[in-house]
Nucleic acid binder design. Structure first.
Lengths: 336, 336
DNA sequence: AGAATTTACTGAACCGGGTAAGTTGTGGAG
DNA sequence: CTCCACAACTTACCCGGTTCAGTAAATTCT
């Protein structure tokens, strides 16, 4: 099947290619009557502008890029990314931008992908997740002048817009809640320590524990279930074991729940569990997990909106999304 | 920053644009010495061919498309798709093809996305998942002559290549295993009944149960945890409740496990559970779930290879991947 | 040695849109 | 009635690759 082009439309409408282009793009230069005639013909023959031709003549590629830099094994079960992607899509497809995805193994490869995308003019901007300390991606994006939005911070990103949520407020609320229930020994299993938002959480956790006169034990982990289990075991074999554990994501929390059950500890009787990020996973297990809920898809949609604004040349500012909301469920109770 | 073009290379090498194009694409028409000089210059100035220009001049877009047609809410927690995507990527990025993703709500919208992508020349082919009965996407792809590979079947797809796994063999093995353990009342919670592979499984389940003189109870569901819970409750409130349940995916199996625990039934003592597809989720919960394991990423890689072969114009045939392997874990045992 | 072929290029057209510059035709002001 | 402004177009070139036809020089064949 041959794809219709503006030349086909021009011929049928009895006008020039230029007129068709003006008409379809809402530019001045054609009468309203002609425009409607042209639009009708385009509709009728199912015209879609060739994205390559468009991109070539200086216009945008109408695509944004996302690189996922976690081992493939983890990606599958991590609801966070898919939630984010759903959110992006809601915003992008409404403005008919495509989302180009690439799974990479290391931040260095991520930078290479950015360079290649930029060189190929394949995308108009990128969404950057998992902001790290002294993130090597930031200077590259600045050098290439590639529009970008960073998720996860706050951190040093120069003129690149950021969007983050108030993790400090959330973890403070969670700790206060557990203390109000009567817990005194509260531990935390954290995500990858190199990520800025992990560090922000750790700092806030230490602060609130200190100010309440509690000991702040954080076991670093990597967001995977395996590591979550291992960290939980390490915490629970202690004679002075914690009566409550806060996990940096829901996958580790579920893994922690299984370890507790396997060790014969009742949840929430012997151990209370709080998960961060409230995917359906939290409500699926027994008991359902108390969680720090955020609307991840909305978070992603927000980021996509910011990115599109940046691409349109609007000056965007850093945005702080609302903090995660504590959603109490069956996994938290006063300690026995 | 200005992006280098072949014209820049041509100038520096003192040859014509055409020569540069031949040199970089390994075409005959330039001497080996000139080719090496040109390649060296391209390397030096960090040249990447503009993908739009390439696509415009008849060559391929070097991108393939994937549409995900499940509610956003489910996508997040469904490890299947991310596993698949990881597999695609392994193959695609090796040949520097991009993956374009779109989340859609209905099969009708999916068809529209295909049409748009085709019209925009944005992609060279698509990967089709969740093959349905009389799938409306198949005739459209045939009409557009858009290269495609279908995952999930077998079914009627004309000249479009398919890849599927032997679900019948897998479920037969699972039933035989449970029967060998001593189970006589085996139920099944299925995925979306409209999908062809669900139907294949249901048929095989009925066959093996009939041949073993068992009653085949299948409760249809939709792959979500919520529905999985509901279906499980419906099965377990029966006075003649099953002693074993086979779930069509791991998310529903985990949900089923939680329901059993909530109802005070011991797993595997009172109820054995078998999950289909073995994501890390299965090993995360307590007890870890016996599962029908497949290497989903490899499955995806396979599909990507087939698609790239189709795009290259090679005649491809339908492929049957190996059946899922039964991986016994703690959730299955002889009934009490 | 001269003709035929091959090699190593060059030049220009082309893909399908966008857009600046030029060309009409019309209406209103002076 | 002329001049000018403006709307409504057309023409032509641009983007950055690919590819085909053409050409001069080098090589092979008879």
């Amino acid at each position: 099947m041959k794809r219709p082009t503006i030349a086909d439309i021009a011929r049928r409408a009895g006008v020039s290619k230029g007129a068709v282009s003006y008409a379809l793009n809402g530019q001045p230069g054609v009468s309203e009557a002609t425009r409607q005639r042209i639009v009708a013909i385009a509709q009728e023959i199912g015209f879609n502008p060739n994205s390559a031709a468009r991109a070539l003549s200086g216009a945008s590629a109408r695509a944004v890029g996302l690189t996922l830099c976690r081992p493939a094994r983890i990606l599958g079960i991590e609801p966070w990314f898919m939630g984010l992607i759903s959110g992006f899509e809601a915003e992008l497809s409404a403005r008919s931008y495509a989302l180009t995805l690439q799974v990479v193994a290391t931040p260095e490869l991520e930078v290479e992908v950015y360079r290649r995308w930029w060189g190929e003019r394949r995308i108009d901007g990128v969404i950057v997740t998992d902001l790290r300390e002294n993130d090597i991606r930031i200077p590259v994006l600045q050098q290439l002048q590639l529009p970008a939005v960073v998720i996860g911070g706050p951190g040093e990103t120069g003129n690149i817009a950021q969007i983050w949520s108030d993790d400090a407020g959330a973890i403070t609320e969670a700790v206060r809640y557990l203390v109000a229930l009567g817990h005194r020994r509260i531990a935390r299993v954290s995500g990858l320590p190199g990520l800025l938002h992990t560090q922000a959480r750790t700092r806030a956790f230490n602060d609130i524990c200190t100010s309440l006169g509690l000991e702040a034990t954080t076991v670093p982990s990597d967001y995977t279930g395996e590591e979550g289990s291992r960290a939980t075991r390490r915490l629970l074999i202690d004679t002075e074991r914690p009566t409550a554990i806060i996990y940096d994501n829901d996958v580790m929390a579920v893994a922690g729940l299984a370890v507790a059950q396997e060790m014969g500890l009742a949840v929430p009787g012997d151990l209370s569990i709080v998960a961060w990020d409230d995917s359906p996973l939290c409500s699926l297990v027994h008991p359902p997990l108390t969680a720090l809920s955020r609307d991840i898809a909305e978070y992603g949609a927000h980021a996509a909106r910011e990115l599109l604004a940046t691409i349109d040349g609007k000056q965007v500012t850093n945005v702080e999304a609302g903090p995660a909301q504590l959603t109490p469920r069956g996994s938290t109770a006063p300690p026995r």
